[in-house]
Nucleic acid binder design. Structure first.
Length: 336
DNA sequence: AACAGGAACAACCGCCAGAGT
DNA sequence: GACTCTGGCGGTTGTTCCTGT
């Protein structure tokens, strides 16, 4: 009946990981690859539960993680994505390939939330009612636009897949669930206008968000990604195994590592996709590592496009401004 | 130099959906 | 179909570091 327990709670070590534990874990994953976390503690002798091993790997040891201060560019992306997606840190992190959801969550809670709070207080104290009303109007506009585009996307997909229209009445078989991805939509007349949104389920992957948003993109971006400082920040961390595509227990090869980051970022900026499990041919002290950077899925727009959309005031709106002109621009503008 | 308070971040906790048996 | 576990996620906590007094 069922699976055996992943670990017994007795004798499980808690608290900060030691460098020795990190090395053991990295060595094991290097040999067997990530996954099957249940087997990790038993096979490595680590007195950690499988969950702890997984978290340590995904949040700290995984190659390609960028640590250190967030750039202004990343801050803006997080703020916009948070406004759009809510506290769906994993979804937000999928658009910041070198950041973990935990990192983004922490950064939001410790930095950005406070910043935004202060700004909102300032706005309140200024009692700028006209701005507030304009914000709410703009927000309604982009929500409607969002729903409309979801609707259109669903229709297009239904046509493409030749779905039976009767499926629209079945919540379990419909395709999109805007509530799941975008959070509950405020009650408004748009619910009637787009009833499908209420009753659908979503394919539950962030690339779908990108697909939905793709039509808002007007032109390919030439933006530089936010990762230009990845190399320095990566190597400045204390963990012996931190790095990018390739891990090294000594950091003597930092120039190679930095170069590797830059190479990847260059591809990133050019919109060239690479996948989660791309095995690199780079060798460092005879050790091969798999590239575990977050995937750019086949149907996902290049990150830079999304960044362009997020950061370019005019990218997704007309001169009047209808989508991103939701007060956030004003709000976030004060931040920087 | 010592202390207090706040900031930053790593890690844990609890919940949930999906999958294995 | 029921039960149990895994993996993922978001929220929260605990510890360490930093800064001001």
């Amino acid at each position: 009946m069922g699976r055996p327990p992943c670990c017994d709670k007795i004798g499980v070590k808690k608290g900060p990981w030691t460098p020795e534990e990190d090395i053991i874990l990295v060595s094991y994953i290097q040999e067997h690859g990530p996954g099957n976390w249940r087997a990790v503690p038993t096979n490595t002798g680590l007195l950690r539960c499988s969950k702890s091993c997984r978290l340590r790997w995904t949040n700290y040891l995984r190659p390609g993680i960028k640590r250190g201060g967030f750039t202004e560019h990343e801050e803006k992306m997080i703020i916009h994505l948070q406004a759009l997606l809510g506290n769906r840190w994993a979804a937000i992190a999928s658009y910041l390939p070198q950041r973990t959801d935990n990192d983004i969550k922490n950064y939001w809670n410790t930095h950005l939330k406070k910043k935004l709070g202060k700004i909102q207080e300032n706005e309140k104290s200024n009692n700028n009612s006209s701005d507030i009303s304009r914000q709410s109007i703009s927000k309604g506009q982009w929500e409607r636009r969002l729903q409309t585009d979801i609707h259109m996307a669903k229709q297009a997909l239904c046509e493409a897949l030749s779905l039976d229209k009767s499926d629209k009445n079945k919540t379990s078989t419909s395709i999109f669930d805007s509530n799941k991805i975008f959070g509950p939509v405020p009650s408004s007349s748009t619910e009637q206008a787009n009833p499908i949104i209420q009753t659908s389920t979503y394919a539950s992957s962030t690339e779908n968000i990108a697909r939905l948003l793709e039509k808002w993109m007007k032109k390919p971006s030439t933006n530089n990604s936010s990762s230009s400082q990845a190399g320095s920040s990566l190597m400045s961390t204390s963990s012996p195994s931190e790095g990018t595509t390739f891990l090294s227990f000594n950091s003597s090869n930092s120039s190679d590592i930095s170069q590797s980051i830059e190479d990847h970022d260059a591809k990133f900026d050019q919109g060239i996709n690479f996948t989660t499990t791309t095995t690199t041919t780079h060798e460092n002290n005879g050790i091969l590592f798999q590239d575990e950077r977050k995937p750019i899925l086949d149907n996902e727009m290049p990150l830079s496009l999304l960044e362009k959309w997020l950061l370019d005031d005019a990218a997704a709106q007309g001169q009047d401004g209808d989508f991103m002109d939701l007060g956030l621009e004003e709000t976030t503008a004060d931040l920087f």
